[in-house]
Design a protein around this nucleic acid. Sequence first.
RNA 1: GCCGGCGUGGCGGAAUUGGCAGACGCGCCGGACUCAAAAUCCGGUGAUGGCGACAUCGUAUCGGUUCGACCCCGAUCGCCGGUACCA
Length: 835
Amino acid sequence: MNEKYEPKAIETKWQERWEAQKLFKTDNEGAGEAFYLLEMFPYPSGKLHMGHVRNYSIGDVAARFLRMNGKNVLHPMGWDAFGLPAENAAIKNGVRPDLWTHANIDEMRAQLKTLGFSYDWDREIAMCDPEVYRWTQWIFVQFFKAGLAYKKKNPVNWCPDCETVLANEQVVDGRCERCGTEVGKRDLDQWYLAITKYAQRLLDDIDAKLGGWPDNVKLMQKNWIGRSTGAEVDFPVEGFGEKLRIFTTRPDTLYGVTYMVLAPEHPFVGPLTDGTEYAPQVAVFKDKLQYLNDIDRASTTLEKEGLFIGRYAVNPLNGARVPIYIANYVLMDYGTGAIMAVPAHDERDFEFARKYDLPVVPVVDPGNPELDLNNLTAAFVAEGTMVNSGPFDGLNNKDAIREITAYVEKQGFGQATVNFRLRDWLISRQRYWGTPIPMIHCETCGWVPEKEENLPVLLPEDVQFTGKGQSPLTTSKSFRETVCPVCGGPAEREVDTMDTFLDSSWYFLRYTDARNDERIFSDAAVRKWMPVDQYIGGVEHAILHLLYARFFTKFLYDIGYAPTDEPFTNLLTQGMVIKDGKKMSKSIGNVVSPEEIIAKYGADTARLFILFASPPEKELDWSDAGVEGSHRFLARVWRLCKAALDDAGGASPAPTPADCRGGILPPADDDAARALRFALHATIKKVTGDIGERYQFNTAISAIMELVNAAYKYKEADGNAALLREVCETLILLLAPFTPHLCEEMWEAYGHEESVLLAAWPAYDPAALEVDTQEIALQVNGKVRGKAVVPAGLDAQALAAHAQELPEVRALLEGKDVVKIVGVPGRLVNIVVKG
RNA sequence: GCCGGCGUGGCGGAAUUGGCAGACGCGCCGGACUCAAAAUCCGGUGAUGGCGACAUCGUAUCGGUUCGACCCCGAUCGCCGGUACCA
C-alpha cells in the first residue's frame, strides 16, 4: 500500500479491471435469490448533474450490498433517449438527432463509469434504438387491438413554444412542463390511450399492492386520479325536448337547488338561446372567455361571472322552477359540464348567488343556535340534519345522500355515478424525435395498425426541421405514402410521434431480456425478474411516470405478457440536491459539477459525501467543506488500514476473513480488546440494518466513522496488531458498497485475489455483543440525576429491585418519600418521589 | 382554499418510534508535532450561572396526557411539497 491515499490511480485501475472481468454482468440463470434493483434512467443531456450522482450512488450502494449478501442482482442502465433537446439541436445547428443523442450517451456513459457504478452494461438500452422502439410500437398496436387506443378531435393543450400538444399531466400551473410557456387550446385530431378504463384499478391497487411506496406518493396519485362519488340527475328544461344532465357529489342538497349553471361551451347553450333575445349577450360572454388563457380561467381567485340565458329548468324532486345560467366557473371537461347550484351548501354557488341576487335555500341544519340559517353569511358545508327537504327532513345528511340517490334512481330521475378527475392520455406529439405511431390511414379501411411483422416503422431521414407547428414527418413523402395493410390500396402513415412518456412506461421490462430480437421479452426472463424489487428516483415523477408505468404494466399483464400488474414493489424517492437553500440550477448559478468534484477528490469521496450528508429521501444541502471532510475521512481510513497491515506483518500469508475472525491469529482478550470487538460487531449489526432495511446510508456511514475512531484509540494505546488487522479487514467490507475503489485497493493489499464485491458481507457475532454489566441512567421524577453500573439482562422488575440497593440511589433518595420505581432494562431507572 | 410533510446547537443532521436530546461530520477554540506553515494526532465545543464536582433552562409557540414527551393529543405560528372554480 502507498503511504498516501491517491484516488486517481486507484479508481482508474479498478474501473478497468471491473470492466475487463465483466464483474457486474448479471446472468438470468445466475445463482442466488433474484433481486431487481433499478434507478430511473436519465435523459441523455450529455452531462451528469448532482441529482444523477445522488440517485445512482444510492442505487449502487444497495446493489453492491445485495451482491455481497449473495443476491443475484439485476442492476441495469439505459437512456430515455427520445425528446425535444435533440430535435432543437437539429433545428438550430442542423445536427442529426440520432448522432447528437448518441454522442451524449457516450459522454454520459463514460461519466457513469468514472463513478464506479456497478451496472450490467450488456443490458444497456436506448429508447431511440429501432430495435427498442419497435416494441414501443408493438405495445401501441396491442393497445389499439384492445380498443384502448383511439383517435379523437378535441380541444387540446397546445404549447406554442414547443409547437406540440401536451397531456393534461404535462401542463403544470397552466404552463408547459418542459419549457414553461403558457399553454393554450387547439382543436386537433389526436391519439389517446384510455387510461381512464384503468382508473379504478389504479386507485384500488395503491392501497392493495403498494405497501412499499412512500405515503406522499400514494396520496398524490390518489388525488390525481381523483375519484368522486355522487349522482347524475336529469333536470327537464321548460320548452325544450332534452333533459339537462348534471353531476353532483351532494345529492342530499337536491332540495336546495336555486339555479342551474352550464359551462359556456355546453352543447345545449346554442339550442337554448339561438334566435332568442339572449343570443347576442351569450355570444359576447363566450367571446370574452375565449380571451382568457387557461391560467386565469382556472384560477379560484377569478371573480365568478355568469349570464342568465332566459330559460328555466324544473327540479324533478320538488317541481321548483329554477333559472339557467352560463358561468365561467363551470368547466366543460368535468362531469357533464353542467351543475345544479346549491348556494346554501357550496362556497362557489354561494359567492355567485350573492353577486346575482339569487335565493339561498338551506337544506342541511348544522344544529348550531348561533347560526341563523335564513341569513347565512357563508355556505355551510359540514354535516347536519336535513330540513326543507320534504320526506327526507330529519335525516342526517350523510344518510340522506344514500336515501335521496336511491329515490332518484327509483323514480328514474338519474343514477348513482362515479367521476374521475383523471383524463385519457393524449399521446400524439407533432415532433420528429420520438417513436412513430405505427398507424396507417386508408380511405376505405380507416385507421389500421402496421402489421406487427413490419415493425419497426422507422423514423425517416429525409425530413426538414422547420420548427413550425406540424410534425417534421409530414415533410417526408417516402414515409407518408404507403399501402394499406388490410386492402393493399394507397394509404397514408400517421405523421405524429408518441409522447416520450410511453418509452419510460415499459423500459424496465426490456432490461430483463434486452437483446431479444423476436419478442418484447421472453416469458422466462420477465418472470425471473419482475416486479422491480426496489425502484429509486426523484419525487418529481410521483405522478406522471409512475402512474403511466403502472398503467402499462397492468395492460401488459391483462394481455398475458407481464407476470404482475404492478411494476415496482418498493419505491424510494430521493430528495433534491440544493445549494445555499436553492435548487442547483444554471440560472441561479449555484451548480457544482460532478466532474470537478471527481477530478479534485475522486469518485469515492463524491459518493461518500452525497450519501453521508443527508438521508436519501430528504433534500441534500451541498457543502464544499463537507466534501473535504469526507475526503479526509477516507484518507484516515487508508492510513489506519495501512498501519494495521504493516504492524500485523503485511499481507503474506494472506489470511482469509474467517481466519481473522476465527482466530488463527494470536488472541487478544483484555478489556480494551473486548471493547473494540464489541464496537466492531455492533457496527456490523448497525450498518447491515441501516443499508439493508432502513436505506439510511448517512447513519451507516457515521457508524463506520465511529468504528474508525475506536480503532485509532485502540491503536494509540498499543493494542494488539492482529485484532486491529481483523477490525480493518471487516471495516473494508463494510465500506465497500460506499467507496468501492478504495476498498478494492485495500482488499487486494490485504492479500485477497478476488474482488471485494465477491466477498461475503460480514455477519456480526452475537457472542461479541454479550456483556456482563451495563451502564444505566438514574432518574428522579424523570430527570437524570446520575449513572450506575448494573448487571446486564435484568428485567424491569429485577432492575427496579436492584436499584434500591445501589449506594448511588440511596444517596439520591436521602430524606425523600419514594412512590414507585420504574425500571427500563438496559436504559434507566426512574424513581418517583413525593414533594 | 383543500390535502400532505416538516420545524432539534453556528451549519448538515442523529436519537430504529414513549426511556440518558444533540451520535457522526462541518465550523470554531485549545494542545502536541514543526524553524515555520500545511498535513496529521489528541482534547474541548447547546445556553446561562459557578474556580469547581454541579445547578437551572433547552427540540417553533402555548396547553394537555404520562413515572417519563423531539416522539402521543389539542390549539397557534412559520416553511416546504402536491393540487386547485373537479360540482
